[in-house]
Amino acid sequence: MTVLVLTRQLVESPADLVVHELNQRGVPVHRIDPGDFPRQVMLSGRIGPEHHDWTGGWRGQHRELALGDVTAVYYRRPSPHEVDPALSDDDARWARSEARAAFTGIVQSMRCRWVNHPRHNVIADSKPRALATAARSGLRIPATLITNDPREARAFVASLPNRTAVYKPIAPPGQRVFNGEKAAVWTSPPLGPDDLTDDIAFTAHTFQQWIPKKHEVRLTVVGGHLFAGEIHAHSDESRIDFRRDYDALTYRVCTVPDDIRCGVQRLMSAFDLRYAALDFLVDHDDTWHLVDVNPNGQYGFIPELAQPIARAIADLLEGRMS
């Protein structure tokens, strides 16, 4: 039995917590960053008429692993594959593509427990798909419009209860480089119909009903276990999007209403996820509105929950929890 952890080698705090927990339990762990292949890791896989699974393994700087020993995989933000810098740009692109196809193809064909399988993450990471699946699962979502039609956008915002919406990007991640500088496109401040310009026509834009909230909840789901923490914002910036001002946040562990619990379980089942971090807005009537599904979201930032969540993930990987 070996738990394979596919992540960066240095300082990936959610993965580090899980590795530390597995180490303490004496569970064999093999940590590898796919980004090390092919430059620092040798991979060999064989299959043929006498085998139904890939056999072989990889040999790295510190240790070796046989594919057949792997019983579970924890997939947590690995690096892109790195190739020899001596290659030309075109050759490097081809070499990366081949390395990626080989590594992912062999690893993803392993019949073992995944947290989460990357293919399931991809499906759940689509915001339009996540909203639709959440609604079908019985979870309340804010009124949402995706459009590149400025007139449609203004009409949508004008139709909302407070004639107010927020803009948010559709594609992850939140940070991009613009004019050579790192910047983030997060949830915008509240917008009225007159704030919307014809520049909406340049691409798809998402507008979502502005929900006046008491607080947010980060609900982390591990197997059948739910870990919920209220996020209380104490500045104007963090009230718009808590990522805008971390210093103004405080947290409190909370319970999950039964209807939310049932909806979340349906959502997890629909996406075939064993782990997810869900973001809810809780309004002044205590109604929970799901605004974000993060199939591989951070979990360490509510201190009281970090260790219990790491233990639950370790339980999943060890096979103590389904």
């Binding site: 933000r77 892109p80 990626r100 993450n121 990471d125 992850p172 991640p173 199939p295 979201g297």
Partner: peptide
């Protein structure tokens, strides 16, 4: 910018 979710 590293993918959160995907080797695909």
């Amino acid at each position: 910018a590293v993918s959160d979710s995907d080797v695909d």
